[in-house]
Design a protein around this nucleic acid. Structure first.
Lengths: 339, 339
DNA sequence: GTGAAAGCGCTAACAC
DNA sequence: GTGTTAGCGCTTTCAC
């Protein structure tokens, strides 16, 4: 027998019949146990267990207006930054008895808007991660469902933010302390909010410390782009390279190795995100760690909280710290004593 | 105004009223356009568009018995093998107008069973990837919903299989052709079906070709386990190491580098899966490529197909090829001429 | 404390 | 061709 042949699902009616009560009693036995007499409740629950009854959430949702689903919209599941976030969000959603609808937009803002619109009715709210949608589009979809942003700010939309400026500041200070005075920044995608954050923090801190920074890019946030960028960066006559993210940094690192440029002896290299493989590279990458799993968890909490609250409530953004992990891809610039 | 304040969702009644027709006509305008007169249809569709109406899938599901949801159950989203699969499955599901409910079981068979049971009512079927459930548990949940397996076989449950034996055979032949005669295999988790597949193919091929293989493990499928395993493997006096998967191989590789053991000059190293970072390692890893994204896509197709068909239909397993990608972590054993 | 009944938004007979 | 109606499985008044 194949799965398709499964028997008609057992409903609340079956349970009521078996328990010799009405369906409302069964319903109450589940949701308001206190209000039903102990022995009646027992009978109902036992009958339910015996029949293997589980309430149909869709039917419940129809009447309560709550689906117990949350949507999670990410730009690219395969980008190593996101799995941890997805995992965190999934775990928290499940812990809070919600299912997670996952959508991958392939980095396309139009897909993003369309997908959220399509999902609106079947979820209680959606979490949009690193959204590339315009503020207007964001405002529009926020009308359709409860929206929570991760790693993106927009007016009147609650968000889980990563303090990338803080991490970047640490990175620049680290470089400066080592003796670096000229660095190059490898820009990420132009439309990326993360890139703007990282870039401006880098510029501000550099300026404050009197470091020169030249900029290259924009580049795709990929390993291949890093390979490409490495040669350009080398031509810039800087002693340190700060990449938009680890993927790019890893590409740079590989290309530098291929060209025989020693890291960190000839040039220092800093990544961003601290993806799993940053620490596995050779040399292990100095990078800014971003708490992706925590962001996923917090986003779910924030969403569920927002749904529960009356609108126009208090300020409820979350801000998560990021911090520099110093590993072996950074050191004093050439000609500078190692200690 | 916050999202929570959104106005009551527009229903089919609103559209019918606006279009001056009955709700059934509106419904038909959407699902059986041909059967409704052109101008009536126009009016209905226009009214729907004007009001921003989208059918409530839960309500529809209640009556059609189809939810347009599919469940995807994976052991660990953060394991680099799965994101590609998830991405493939998500894309195909969306293309076929289905939503994807993602669940991460943290490698726990009990969670797995429980999750599928809980999901059964809100999906049309579920795809279980690399399931560690017992055959009995599998048979039980297959009763509850339409089940499709990926990378696991069980009686009477359709599956998308990866021909790991084929890839492993290629790997061993490759090693043998290079001149290797003694290799060590680093086992993955004991309960893993993948490990059994890989291990037995390796043993069979080795035997056929007259290679000795010693086994170590079981190890967790992780980088750290690889680091640990490297030293043990070295003590085995073999000229080649075959790891359960790339993560392990990468750990081995790092540890070998740290100990100053040259790959492939002193020892050859083979991984499995061809995760993104296999090609980024130094040296780039020779590994067996597994078409994860295709597996995800095929699983969705197979599931939807199975749901559509009458039960007990024809045989419908998919088998996907795997193939060796020769990169730079394998070469002739020491003392053997390089050409 | 428990049951009857009215829907939630929708589709699928069944009339007209 | 189009409208009316009976539910899908459930929660929630409202009586009792």
């Amino acid at each position: 027998m194949r799965g398709a042949q499964r028997k008609r699902a057992v409903t609340i009616n079956d349970v009521a019949a078996a328990a010799g009560t009405s369906i409302s009693t069964v319903s109450r036995a589940f949701h308001e146990p206190d209000i039903v007499r102990a022995d009646t409740r027992e009978r109902a629950l036992e009958a339910a267990a015996a029949l293997g009854y589980t309430p149909n959430r869709a039917a419940r949702g129809l009447i309560t207006g709550r689906t117990a689903n949350v949507g999670l919209v990410v730009p690219d599941v395969a980008n190593p930054f996101f799995p941890a976030l997805i995992k965190g969000a999934q775990a928290r959603a499940r812990a809070r008895d919600h299912a997670l609808l996952l959508v991958d937009t392939d980095e396309d803002p139009n897909t993003e808007a369309q997908v959220i619109r399509g999902m609106a009715k079947q979820v209680d709210g959606v979490i949009a991660v690193s959204s590339r949608m315009s503020d207007r589009a964001l405002a529009e979809v926020a009308q359709l469902t409860t929206l929570v942003l991760v790693n993106r700010r927009a007016v009147d939309v609650p968000a889980v933010l990563l303090d990338m400026a803080g991490g970047m500041r640490q990175a620049v200070e680290h470089l400066h302390a080592l003796g670096h005075r000229r660095c190059v920044y490898l820009n990420g995608p132009r439309a990326s909010w993360s890139n703007r954050q990282r870039r401006s923090a880098l510029r501000a801190t550099s300026k404050r410390l009197g470091m020169t920074v030249s900029e290259l890019g924009p580049f795709e946030p990929s390993y291949d782009a890093g390979v490409l960028a490495a040669d350009l960066a080398l031509a810039e006559d800087a002693t340190a390279i700060v990449a938009y993210n680890d993927l790019v940094a890893l590409g740079v690192n590989a290309r530098l190795a291929a060209r025989g440029v020693a890291v960190p002896d000839e040039v220092s290299l800093v990544g961003f995100d601290d993806i799993q493989f940053a620490s596995m590279a050779s040399p292990p990458l100095t990078t800014v760690a971003v708490p992706a799993a925590a962001a996923g968890r917090d986003a779910v909490d924030l969403l569920l909280e927002t749904i529960g609250h009356a609108p126009g409530g208090e300020r409820d953004d979350h801000q998560l710290r990021t911090e520099l992990r110093v590993r072996h891809s950074t050191g004093p610039p050439p000609g500078r004593p190692r200690a």
